[in-house]
Nucleic acid binder design. Structure first.
Lengths: 217, 217
DNA sequence: AAAAGATTGTTAAAAATTTCACTATGCCCC
DNA sequence: GGGGCATAGTGAAATTTTTAACAATCTTTT
């Protein structure tokens, strides 16, 4: 039974896998032991075939006629995603959002350890937030290597995002999650994800506008 | 020339339009007056045809042989998305993330006015954050109507998300942006968007893992 | 131990989305 | 004002993604 591990895996599959993990954890908390693709699909708001297909990229985790063991499936997905280890991350930009991330425990709980906080504002440098001292951004390349940072989180204003990225690239960073409202330039071997909640507000505003327009016809 | 305004518009198109607006604003700041689909495509990291096709859903905004007027195109897209007005929003859940949103000026700058902040923690009720007094969540239905809230932003913990949503639905909310790490149940006429930055970290972690695995072969 | 029922893994079909290629049109220069 | 160049808009093709259908197989029942 040849696994498809070396097929290209759709980006959408990855984000759904994250949703499956989330829902499986919810089920685990509720004491559910076994779940079918049908039931999981309902709680994730997707098609059951979709789930089975998504999982097939990584292996066979179910039992025909039965379903999936909640705990085992969750672990299997997490392992497939590379979450069976911890990742060192650095936060660049200590504004409102950066501070929230530094204080928010969820990153650590998920295995992403914030090992560095950087900012270029002299008033912020030296300040302690969430147990970390804010370091001058110009020390990023040096510190990134020293602290063994693999993923950078950009929470600077838009106009300083690229500079922060450049510092990280200089240190050979492997991945970046960009919260700044700006596109950034990186070489193709660096994994970049954009998080922009304003876009989601735009989307909601559009859909409301649209459904109201439709109502008028 | 029949506009396609009443064709179903792909979700992906909407999120790209938000990117176009972002980049057009950047160009505006740099004094660029006119841009071609080719140039805009490069700065957004997409295909030029894609841009032209996305815009075609809403009308014709360009000038053949020339390109698009930066300011006019930006305005046209914003109008198409329903951003030529302000939207009243409420934040439900005043933890680290909720606070960051309340203090973060970007929402207001984008036309999303936070008119209410809600939480169920008695220690937080009455507190003033970003010029707003935190109100008890149980007053949500009443206050939502009173303040004319159209969009709700959920920043509660996962286990309280659905309750917050139910309160909002009770008041006839039209759209929800959910930052809580949980799927929520809503009727189909309510626009829902999920924002979960942990998923983006997952995605980056996966892609790093994958590219390292590939390197070993 | 065979049959019935359930549900996965997988192949095939359908649908959606993206990209290509070309036509139409506007600007600029001679 | 005509020709050349540039670039938007658009229909068709290619690609990707999703959904449906079904064969394989596991559990339970009789």
């Amino acid at each position: 039974m040849p696994h498809r591990k070396y097929e290209r895996i759709p980006r959408a599959t990855i984000s759904r896998l994250a949703i499956y993990v989330q829902e499986l954890e919810g089920m685990e908390r509720q004491g559910v032991k076994v779940v079918s693709s049908e039931k999981l699909a309902v709680s994730c708001g997707v098609n059951p075939s979709q789930i089975r297909k998504d999982l097939a990229y990584f292996g066979e985790f179910g039992l025909r006629g039965v379903g999936y063991h909640v705990f085992e499936l969750k672990e299997a997905i997490k392992q497939s995603l590379g979450l069976d280890r911890t990742w060192n991350v650095a936060v660049v930009g200590v504004g409102n959002l950066g501070r929230a991330l530094l204080r928010h425990g969820v990153l650590r709980k998920r295995g992403f350890i914030i090992v560095g906080a950087f900012d270029c504002d002299p008033f912020k440098i030296g300040e302690e937030i969430g147990g970390l001292e804010v370091i001058c951004s110009s020390k990023l390349p040096e510190k990134t290597r020293e602290l063994n940072v693999e993923i950078g989180i950009i929470t600077t204003p838009a106009e300083r995002a690229q500079r922060a990225v450049n510092y990280l690239l200089e240190a050979g960073i492997k991945g970046i999650v960009n919260f700044a409202p700006a596109r950034i330039k990186t070489p193709p071997n660096v994994a970049v994800e954009y998080v922009d909640f304003i876009h989601h507000l735009f989307s909601v505003a559009f859909r409301i506008t649209q459904s109201q327009a439709k109502g008028l016809i």
